[in-house]
Amino acid sequence: MKPAPFDFVRADSRAEALSVLKAEGTDARIIAGGQSFMAMLNMRLARPKVLVDIMRLADLATLSEAKGDVLVGAGIRQARLLAWDDLSRTLPLIAKALPYTGHVQTRARGTVCGSIAHADPSAELPLCLVALKGHVHLATAKAKRKVAAADFFTGMMATAKADDEMIEAVSFPVAGREGTAFREIARRHGDFAIVACGAVATDTGIRLAVGGVADVPTARDFPLLEGSALDDALNSFAYELDARDDVHASARYRRELVRRIGRATIEEALTCRA
C-alpha cells in the first residue's frame, strides 16, 4: 500500500497554498497532520496530482479566544487543543470528546481542522462542531466565507468546501452555564464510534448531536422532557437518522444505542449545568 505519485508543495505562505488550489482545482489537496488523509493516499482511495503541505505556516497554528468564540487554526494539532489550559472552561464538550478521537499517537499529529475536513460521519470533532453550532472558516485566493456546521457537512466524507477552498480555521462558541456530556460506543477505545452522542443542556432545552448513524453528524433540539416523553422523542430521532446495517452493527442496534446512550448523555448534561 503505497500512494500513487504526486507533486509535493511545501507552502511558505497561505497565499501560496491557495494559489496552488486555484491553479490545480480538483487535482490538488491540502495535507496537514495527515492522520486520515495519508491512510486514504496509502490505500489509493485518494489520488491527487498535487499535495500542499500547510504545516509550516506559523500563522495557521493559532489558538485564540475572542468575541465569544474559540478560533482553532488549521495548523493546530488535536493534542495541542487537548492540552490547552482553557479547554475545560471554554469548550467542556470538546474536553470530554477529544480523548475519544483516535489515540495518543494520532492526536499528536492529526489536526482539528483536518478532522472537520475529512468529515467522517462517526468522528467526534465534526459532531462537536454541529452540537455547539460552530463555524468553518474557508478561504480561496480571492475570498473568504464562514459556513455554519449544519451546512458544512453534506454527506459521508463530503463537505460544502469547494475544490479551490481551504479551511483556515474552525470556531466554536465559548460555553456559558450550559451542561455538556459526551458518550460513545466503539469496538475498542479509539476505534470509529458505532454511535457517539454529545449533549448540551440549558435551562430551557436540550440539544443532542449523534454521530456514526446518519451520513453526517446530526443535532436535534428538544424541550426539557422527562420520562416516557424523552424516550418517545429519542425513539423518533433514532428512526429519523435512517440507520443502516453494516459490518460493525445492525441498524436496530444503532437505534437502540441512540435511545439509551442518547438518554444517558442528556441526563449527564442536565446534571452538569452550572
Binding site: 495535507i31 495519508m38 499517537q105
Partner: peptide
C-alpha cells in the same frame, strides 16, 4: 500501513508519529 497497528511509531520533533502516515519529504 494505514495508521492502525502502531508498529511503525517513531518520534518526530518530540511528537509521536506513525511513520507510515508521514511522508519522507515532510
Amino acid at each position: 500501513e494505514h495508521g492502525v497497528c502502531g508498529a511503525c511509531t517513531v518520534e518526530v520533533d518530540g511528537m509521536l508519529a506513525r511513520s507510515c502516515l508521514t511522508l519522507a519529504v515532510q
